[in-house]
Every structure is written in structure tokens, then in C-alpha cells.
Design a protein around this nucleic acid. Structure first.
Lengths: 341, 341
DNA sequence: CTATTTCACGCAATCGTTTGCATAACGCAC
DNA sequence: GTGCGTTATGCAAACGATTGCGTGAAATAG
């Protein structure tokens, strides 16, 4: 019922040997006699001795802990990602410290500082929506704390990144629709500042050009991600003549709003109008009228991959990494078709 | 470009004062002259000195870190819970270390041990499905590391717990159905060992007795939570005569499977048969045929509350807590009606 | 001018563990 | 009995910060 965990010192006292002997005995050091080794190990078991990691961390300047900073655990994408991160970290005997930025830059900075002071060995980050400066991360690099970004990554090339390339998925999606006979394909993007929105538009144009279809930019619109914004976007698209027969939507949630609106307008889903979106949420299996297909972004895999990369970087900490060599890992999105009709 | 963070010692060296003076100056200790204090603080800022928490933790035997062990971050319920936990922890300047047991007891024990060795100040746990012994947790109590369980809590009364009481929600749900005119109400429980299953059955009986309705225990069945198990459960219920007109289902996901099955049997949802379930997933808003109502369990709130309780317990660590006094906090589930038809 | 208080700072121990180096005890050969 | 190589163990420093106690110098009182 004592409130102190047993220490190496306590074992030493009880056996009347020195601290260093105990330490070595527990590490199976060759220079320790068999008898002593046995006695130490037995008493250690008996006292349920466990080394005090905080002391070891402190001494070794290594905590076997990685930090993860992401916007919001409440979002399926991020909780799946951290699921993957935790899995890999555990396999490598690392612990995981988490922080949510809640898309607030000040909070993000605060978390990073705290984690730095806690001497994490490495950091995985998905940026807050509003982060535009990266000095709080470059500060870490100076102290050999490697950083890997995933999903929401900085634009600058001077960082390690893992992210999904939606281009191939977008390409697949549009070609899928064209192959189904669609000629007027609408797009609902997210806010303009999102890189993914610009890329989507770009790929859209490329594919249409490659397939020698007419590009009508009135069919490319955006939503602020609110339900109302999505309704306005749909209203805009459906007022075009001729109407689009298919719409590519930024993600499944927004697609559901869009589908709801279309239904209210008495359109038959997958007949009058088709939807393809991104994320591939598990719930789509339960929907009567799911998007026809969606582009899976593999959040678990992205998280796991980011963690693997970080493990590598941490292992290489001794070798001076050549400056200017940053990993850039792209996970291709993949079109998952839900409904062939 | 040096790879060592500045230390108090470095500041002392540069200013030619002692380490203790620097420490005190940084803490605004009264015994330090104004001049010295200013010089120290200025140099500290200039070097971007930040205290090495691992050293402080080690010395103070306090890490300002709490551990969270739960089955699976991939599940919405748990990711929302940890969202709440992280929020409260951050407010109190605590960091959060997470571990997923993946419903594996051995893994759970391993995580708890690691966290203990990392000298967490407190622990929040939602038990793995198969945990039946609690010695890995009682071990923590001996060392004054308080533990709070949430949602999946031990049966023993000797622990602090936060969990949702589904009884009132269940009562509301059944009364809601009775008020709608239903007289034959089925139940699909989870596996028998789940406490919630037994409680649900109990409340079911109580309400029916109170309302003077006949109890037919053939209408109470269970699923192993697989889709097939749920189909068997539905098959069983629908083969009863007279058929139930409403079914209470253990959670929304299972309800969706059940609804799918009912549709396949050409039953009209909310007409031939109604469903009420638990969890209140956001997706139900998008379903054409959602459960008629579901009992919200407030995972964010449960997590936040568990964290608050833990903070209190950690603050009380000095005062000997009277043995045998354990907190038992119940968060009442609440019926959310989706469809009034 | 001396005695006493106050001020400003330094010394050293401490937390638990690791690890290079020193050293005692022993055996063995000569 | 002396010398030397093993073998088994201990000593002490180090990691970074905190803190009780001691002390020199300056300031004040007498």
C-alpha cells in the first residue's frame, strides 16, 4: 500500500548490492555473476519492479513518444487516420500523444510547443484549415524532431508529406461517368482556397479535353460546405440548360445533402441524375440512393503510412539527412462503384 | 543549427551566474535582483529557451499526462468520446496519451503497463469486450494513479465510473412506441454478457407490466452483432404470431441491418414495422427510412465528464480519499424522435 | 566605526537510471 | 610468495530542473 513504485535503488538496498549491479543484472550484462543476476531478477519480479520511463527518457533524451496534431477527432477521416497511426506506433513500441487544433492556428502552435517541450521523438500533423505559416514546425526541425504531414499538407516542398492524390481518382470518376454516357457533368467543389478544389477542376478540364467533350465552366461550382451552400450550388447546377446528368461532389456528406435536394426537386437518383463523390463512407452501404460511386481516400492507410515514414525518419536521426531531401508520398484515391445502374 | 535545445545551464554559463539563479529568475522568485532577473529573462527569450518537461516531470513525479485506453478509435462513439476527453484535458493543461485495445485483453494490459511506466497521472478506460479481471487496474490504484472508466465499465463497484443509463432512454422509447399504439414490441439485444442487454430486457418488462401489457419473451432476442446474426434475429422475430409491429434494436448500425432485412421481406418501414434504436448517429438524417427514434448516448459528454472526474481525482491526490468511496456518474440517454409518422 | 539585518546569489542534494572506469577478490602459473 | 589476468562488483558522473540552506557583501542601525 505504499505509494511509491519500486526502484532499482530499493532492490539494491534489499540485496545489499550497488545500484549499478542491479541495473546491469536487469539488462543481463555479461559482467555480472550468475548468482547475483538471479537474485536481482527474482526480487525484481517479486516487487513487480518496472523501470521508471520518465527517468530513462530524461537520461536518454528519447521518449519513444510521437505527437499527432490534427484538426478534429470527431471527423471520421481523422479518427480513422489516427487509428492507423496508433497501430503502427504500437508495433514499433511508441506511444502516441494527441492534440486537436480545432482548426485554430493559435491552438495548433500551442500544442506543438507543448509537445516539443515534452520531447516527443517525432510529430505527425494534419494542418488546421487556416495555417499559413510553418515556423512552429521548422523550429522542430532544428532540434532533429522529424515532422511528417498528412492529408492537409503545407504547400512548401520543404516538408515530408503523405497525402492522397485525388487526380487519378477524379480522372477515374469522370471517365466512369463518360463511359456511362454522361456528357454534361457538373462539379460541386469546396471553398476556392482548398487545393483539392483547384486540382479537381483542373483534372475535370483535362479529362473532358482528352475525351473531346465540350467544357462548360458554368457546370463547375462550389459550396461552403453548409447544407444551405450545397443547396444553392445544386440550384445553380440544375438551372443550367441542358441540365447536367451527373454531378461530381467534393465528399460524401455534401453529396448526401445534394441528393436530398435533388429528390426534393423530384429527380430520380441514378436515373435523372447521378452522383459521384469522395470518401466512401461506410454508411453509403445502407443508403437506398447512395452516390453511384465514390473515391476512397484510405484514411487509415494514410495515417499508417505517415507513421511508417516517421519511424524511418526517427531511425535515421543519427545519419545527417541530406538537406533538401523530403519524402513525398502519394496515396492514390480509388474509385469505388456502388451502383452499376 | 545546433541540435540541442537550450538549457538553464547554458543560460547560466553565458551570463556567468549559477543555475539556481537562472531557475529562480525564470520563476520570478523574489530573492533575485531585478537586474539579474531581466538579463536572464531576456537571454531566455533570445535563445527561445523552453523548460525540458521530461526533466521536470522526472523531478516532480508528475507528468501532466493522462492515458486513455479504449477499444477502437474507428468507432464513432469512441472517437467522439476522446474528442471530449482531449478538450477537457487541454483546458487543464494535460496531455493525452492514447491506446487502442482492439478488444484484446492482452493488448489492454500491455498498454496499461506501458502507460504506468510512463508515469501518467491518471487513466481513463473503456474496457475491452473480453476484460473480466481488473488486476491491471487495481495495480494502478496502489500507486495513486486514479482510474475512471466510461461506457464499458467494470461490474465491480470498486471503481470510478461514468456511463450512460439506458434505462430511462429505454423506458422513454418503449413508452413512445406504446403511445403510438404498438402492443407487440420486439427487442434485439447484443450478446448476453453485455450488461446493457440485461438492463434493456429488465426495463422492457417493467414498462410492459406498468402499462399492463402482456409480456411475450419470445419477442426478446439477440444478435452477435454481425449482419448474419441480425438477420437471424429478425427472422426469429418476424416468425412470431402475431408479428411484432415495432422493434427496439441495440444500436443504429444493427438497426440499419435489421431495416434492410425487413425491406427485403417487403415490409414497409414505419408502417408495417417500426424501429427504435440507440446511438443517434448523424447519418440517420440522410436515410430515407431511418429508425423512428433513437436513444442518444452523448459520447462527447461522457468522455468530457470522465475527464472532469479524473481531473478532480488527480487534484485530490494529497487528501487521502476515504476508501470505498467511488464516483458513479450516470448520464441519462435521451430519446430523439426522427420521424413522427 | 562596528554590529546587525537584508539582499542577492551560490552550493549541493535530489529525482531513477545508465555507463565508463576503477578496484577488490580470486585463481593460477611460476 | 610474488606477479598477472580474470571475474564480479562498486564509484561517480551525467541527464535538466528545483529548492532548502548557507554565505558574502551591501545597507542600515546604533
Amino acid at each position: 500500500m505504499k505509494d511509491k513504485l519500486p526502484t532499482i535503488k530499493e532492490i539494491a538496498r534489499q540485496l545489499n548490492v550497488s545500484i549499478s549491479t542491479v541495473s546491469r543484472a536487469l539488462h543481463d550484462h555479461p559482467g555480472i555473476g550468475l548468482r547475483t543476476k538471479m537474485r536481482v531478477q527474482q526480487l525484481a519480479r517479486q516487487l513487480e519492479y518496472e523501470p521508471n520511463q520518465t527517468a530513462i527518457f530524461f537520461k536518454q533524451r528519447k521518449t519513444f513518444t510521437i505527437g499527432v496534431v490534427l484538426p478534429n477527432l470527431g471527423e471520421e477521416f481523422f479518427s480513422q487516420a489516427i487509428n492507423g497511426i496508433e497501430e503502427i506506433a504500437t508495433q514499433n513500441k511508441y506511444s502516441v500523444l494527441i492534440g486537436q487544433s480545432k482548426d485554430d492556428v493559435a491552438r495548433e502552435r500551442q500544442i506543438v510547443t507543448t509537445m516539443k517541450n515534452n520531447r516527443i521523438d517525432g510529430l505527425i500533423v494534419s494542418l488546421s484549415k487556416n495555417t499559413t505559416t510553418y515556423d512552429h514546425f521548422t523550429a522542430l526541425k532544428k532540434f532533429n524532431i522529424p515532422v511528417v504531414f498528412f492529408d492537409r499538407v503545407p504547400t512548401s516542398p520543404d516538408f515530408n508529406k503523405v497525402y492522397s492524390n485525388m487526380n487519378s481518382g477524379t480522372r477515374e470518376a469522370i471517365e466512369f461517368l463518360i463511359d456511362k454516357g454522361h456528357r454534361r457533368i457538373g462539379v460541386i467543389n469546396g471553398p476556392d482556397q482548398m487545393r483539392s478544389s483547384r486540382e479537381r477542376t483542373e483534372t475535370y478540364k483535362q479529362v473532358l479535353i482528352a475525351r473531346r467533350l465540350k467544357i462548360d465552366l458554368r457546370l463547375v461550382t462550389s459550396t461552403d460546405l453548409t447544407k444551405e451552400g450545397t443547396q444553392r450550388a445544386m440550384q445553380h447546377l440544375l438551372s443550367q440548360r441542358p441540365k447536367p446528368t451527373a454531378i461530381l461532389v467534393i465528399n460524401d456528406y455534401i453529396a448526401l445533402d445534394a441528393i436530398q435536394y435533388a429528390k426534393q426537386q423530384k429527380l430520380k437518383i441514378n436515373k435523372d441524375i447521378c452522383f459521384v463523390s469522395y470518401a466512401n463512407l461506410p454508411i453509403t452501404h445502407y443508403l437506398e440512393t447512395p452516390p453511384m460511386a465514390s473515391v476512397e481516400q484510405f484514411p487509415y492507410k494514410q495515417g499508417a503510412k505517415a507513421a511508417e515514414v516517421l519511424m524511418q525518419l526517427m531511425a535515421n536521426d543519427n545519419k545527417k539527412e541530406e538537406p533538401g531531401s523530403f519524402l513525398n508520398i502519394v496515396i492514390n484515391g480509388q474509385l469505388i462503384v456502388h451502383s452499376r445502374r
